[in-house]
Nucleic acid binder design. Structure first.
Lengths: 252, 252
DNA sequence: GATAACTGTGTACGGCGTACAGTTAAGTCT
DNA sequence: AGACTTAACTGTACGCCGTACACAGTTATC
């Protein structure tokens, strides 16, 4: 479902897990499991059946092991979720970036969107705090580099980065929830816009929503939802225009 | 925790609930409960103890009634969550808006942020699809009105609205997860920036994150997090600048 | 008064995260 | 070589969760 995650957690331990900075134990049996295996199985489950399928029991089952043995490698499910995020986050591929701040940020945003499309369950996992893992930091680093090149000072760059990553996540979340709403109600995705339009017309056509009705009648909902790419690029452009207003005119 | 909500749901029924369009039954005992009472109790619980405290059992307990009796009023928990969102969403107060598109959207965004601060659990509930309830539509209507006045056509207005509401949600979510991370790790919120900085310095100072380290050393994380309002206004300005680039020069 | 519609109860099921107490296997030390 | 320590993994159990289902009590209509 949804919810906060109030459990107390040891920050140092979490960090050690994220950076794989746990020195291997000197005694005891060589374990058949490993942190990577546990996380990888959890990711596999999430990819195939959604985040709802990721339970300690099912992860253990997938590894041929009892539930409680997982707790030798992970302090609890919340940490497992964080580790899953870090694992699928990967690193941005900057090799083909054009080198202008705007072009770089466009690539950054598209690559991040691509990741979210590959693993939609990433949007179901509430981020538990500021990024701490190596790969998450690598994404920050890449964007901050481009923004520094654009001439923004560090403070502004951080603020702007939050806006951009927030935009990418929001847009992906929007696409995802539309797709799920369509799926859940048994409507084909291409038809959802039409259904939504009809619903608004029935429910809301009492004169209290004139602009909304005009938008509906103009087809803004009917036509748009089938092409997420165009919507994304449009919003990306708007967002980058806002950032451009903060960039000193000298820079690219 | 977190997760998708795959349950099949009857769209017509959900709509009837959101709009309170259920005609009262003609026979049977007058119920002691009502949809509003159920939703209100769930909201009360969420406000006081967080979304994690909202279970069918506890809502029923709070109403002095058995768990299953709730299902006479709500098809399931997912619908209850949607109804909670609709209830606390309320309507935007447009009475003191300046009338320029930019001023109006600023008020819109601040009011929405205010709502999210009053009920942080709103950010824990995954929106299940496009807005359908009367109050949610009222928020759309208000923003679309201002954007129409700015001269944007309906398509662009919808796209821009998604960006703006996405920004407000993202920023609020960021604040919330920072606050929770601080709380969870037992660090005072004002000190979290300092702790985070120290952590990055220890974990990431291997030369692979030069720009990130520069941002850290410059205090972009240390100083900023204590003043969410300033961060919000900064990002709002950036976002609106992006929108301004889409507004025909004639208008406001 | 019979009937049908409706409200609320009680029990039960399968799932969840995880605390806790074993049991077995591998190093370390005398 | 044997004792000791540590770690890996098992098994059971507890208290939550959402909700399916059968039932009892109440009310308006025929």
């Amino acid at each position: 479902m949804a919810g906060e995650r109030p459990a107390q957690r040891d920050l140092q331990h979490t960090l050690r897990l994220l950076w794989r900075a746990q020195e291997p134990p000197r005694r005891g049996p060589r374990g058949s499991l490993s942190l990577d295996k546990v996380v990888a199985e959890a990711v596999r489950l999430a990819d195939e059946e959604g985040i709802g399928a990721v339970s300690m029991r099912r992860v253990a089952e997938g590894l041929g092991v009892t539930t409680m043995s997982l707790y030798r490698y992970v302090p609890g499910k919340d940490d497992l979720l964080d580790l899953m995020l870090e694992m699928v986050t990967g690193r941005p591929d900057t090799s083909a970036w054009p080198g202008t701040w705007r072009g770089d940020l466009e690539c950054w945003a598209r690559q991040m969107r691509h990741r979210l499309h590959e693993h939609p369950w990433m949007l179901d996992v509430h981020i538990s705090g500021p990024p701490l893992g190596p790969d998450n930091l690598a994404w920050m680093e890449a964007a901050l580099g481009s923004l520094a090149e654009a001439g923004l000072d560090a403070r502004d760059a951080v603020g702007v980065l939050m806006i951009l990553s927030g935009y990418v996540r929001s847009q992906a979340l929007l696409e995802l929830s539309l797709a799920r709403a369509a799926h859940r109600t048994g409507v084909r995705p291409e038809e959802w816009g039409r259904v939504y339009t009809g619903m608004l017309r029935n429910a809301a056509d009492d004169g209290r929503y004139p602009h909304l009705m005009r938008a509906v009648e103009s087809g803004a909902f009917t036509d748009g939802d089938e092409d997420g790419d165009a919507d994304f690029e449009y919003g990306l452009c708007v967002t980058l225009d806002g950032i451009a207003a903060r960039v000193p005119p000298a820079a690219g």
